[in-house]
């Protein structure tokens, strides 16, 4: 049981982290808080991917022995799986792009409604209608 928990600890942690972000996204009323929750949510997924890639006893996915021209056979086992890293680079970029757009929208909302609290905005919208 202990092995079971310890062996997958970063999956558990990523789930907890993701749920923190998820909860913040849904139940926080402040829009910036929601964005922060979103950020946490996305990073949790990145943790998950990087955890997939990790290999015990392997080194970074950057080849050593650069210049000895094939004398050392390159073994896949000794390098960390690079593919999730690639995917996550893209995911991080998407994350920051989303962040930028979200913040721009938040600014627009603030200009329009003068507040960042969801319930106050809703009240104002109702009042207008």
């Amino acid at each position: 049981m202990f092995d079971f928990i310890v062996g997958k600890y970063n999956y558990w942690i990523y789930i907890i982290l993701m749920m923190i972000g998820f909860y913040a996204m849904m139940s926080k009323r402040n829009l910036i808080k929601k964005i922060i929750g979103m950020n946490i949510f996305q990073t949790a997924i990145i943790i998950f991917f990087i955890s997939i890639a990790a290999k015990r006893g392997a080194t970074l996915p950057i080849l050593e022995h650069a210049h000895d021209g094939g004398e050392h056979a390159i073994e896949a086992i000794s390098y960390i799986n690079p593919l999730p890293h690639v995917l996550m680079l893209t995911a991080i970029v998407v994350m920051v792009a989303t962040l930028g757009v979200a913040l721009a929208i938040v600014l627009l909302i603030y200009k329009k409604h003068g507040t960042l609290e969801e319930d106050e905005i809703l009240k104002k919208i109702e009042f207008q209608e």
Binding site: K8, I52, K55, R56, G57, I77, N81
Partner: peptide, 10 residues
């Protein structure tokens, strides 16, 4: 398990 070098992913 985490950091297992023999996962299908690798």
């Amino acid at each position: 398990d985490c950091a297992n070098p023999d996962t299908p992913a690798s």
